[in-house]
Nucleic acid binder design. Structure first.
Lengths: 210, 210
DNA sequence: AAAGTTCCTGACCATATGGTCAAGAAGAGG
DNA sequence: CCTCTTCTTGACCATATGGTCAGGAACTTT
């Protein structure tokens, strides 16, 4: 009894704190990179004393690793779009939509991912070599299948994936540049919709998707 | 007389030293970001004592600024491809080629640019707002002209430019990921050629370029 | 309510880093 | 040769940072 002092059990509070810290960390890592981020900055943003961060995450690197792993998960989930489709128009279209949506809603995560890969992936190298590699091979085969069915032009699937990743993630990673060139205004709903549609149309048409 | 002790006058040596330092700095900033880079690392890579860097560049920030400005210059020079063309196939095609070539030959520079923009451009914000903005407006008009001449589909020029930047720079910024997915091998000449051609073809076809 | 466990935090420490400086080396000019 | 300027560099400093720790608060269990 007497468990409802506030609204949360110990486990729930632990979860909350970890989530809070991870969110702050994601932001700070995205804005400053691993080297530029400081535990103090993350602590301030989370509204906790620095020592508390070290209670939940023993080292800066452990915290960073967790952030990157979380992002990678989201990254992979966008792939569902692929599997449930039976043709390139639907499959690639949905995947592009999903990735654009991630760029819009989780730009910080995308930036951390970009930082990490640019660093030559010191933390998640193993993920690249295993999970990402397998994922990519699977989708490449799928695309290859579509090509052989004559549903789209014969394009190296890897080059296509690079293009989709590049284009969609650009809207997160280079959001600052995009905003400046938009008159220092964030993209409006309409602009996001237009970007999404145009990107999708150009790529699908460029692939000769039937 | 007696000026040819080695092969270089004082001014020439100064130039050499600065170039040497800038090259080392570009690499280190690209690999570690601004925060992660240290003057010591740069000095070691350049083969000079740290104090000597501070003779040529008073602060880390000044050195970084110079690196970024140099990159920006190269960036702009690729735009020549645009001006000398009289249609989208030639103009956009040459621009894509030029940007792909930069990604291949100067990946470090591209990465530093990406870092800087992701940081919300603390150093070169003014460049974004002036030079880049004007450059972009000019090319957007050019593209708009092509559209009105019926040489390509009506696409928001800014979205097109974003797509070209994203796709071409991806090959520099995410070179590590690309290599890992290529079996941990750098792209061969043939693979680069294929990527260049495919990227160009997909985009031009996607734009409905006549 | 006592005992046990988990959580929180201010104060502290060792280290690394950007930057300084003074003293000298190396050329240039006369 | 002598002087003046430009370069070079080892040693040094102030600061910031990641990380530690001991003691206490808060919650849980018996």
């Amino acid at each position: 009894m007497a468990q409802a002092k506030r609204a949360s059990s110990k486990k729930e509070r632990r979860q909350e704190s970890e989530t809070l810290i991870l969110a702050a960390a994601e932001k700070v890592f995205a804005e400053a990179g691993y080297g530029g981020a400081t535990m103090q900055l993350i602590a301030d943003l989370a509204g906790l004393p620095k020592a508390n961060l070290h209670y939940y995450f023993p080292t800066k690197e452990a915290l960073y690793r967790q952030v990157v792993e979380n992002i990678f998960q989201i990254w992979l989930e966008a792939a569902d779009a692929f599997d449930e489709a039976d043709g390139p128009r639907e499959g690639l279209g949905a995947y592009i939509d999903a990735k654009m949506e991630i760029s819009r809603r989780q730009p910080a995560g995308s930036k951390v991912w970009a930082f990490e890969v640019m660093h030559r992936a010191p933390i998640i190298q193993d993920y690249l070599e295993t999970t990402l590699m397998e994922w990519t091979k699977g989708r490449a085969q799928l695309i290859q299948g579509w090509i052989e069915e004559g549903l789209m032009d014969p394009i190296d699937p890897q080059i296509l994936l690079n293009m989709i990743w590049a284009t969609t993630q650009h809207y997160a990673d280079f959001s600052h540049q995009i905003e400046v060139l938009n008159g220092s205004e964030p993209l409006s709903d309409a602009q996001w919709a237009a970007a999404k549609a145009d990107v999708k149309n150009i790529i699908l048409k460029g692939l000769g998707v039937k």
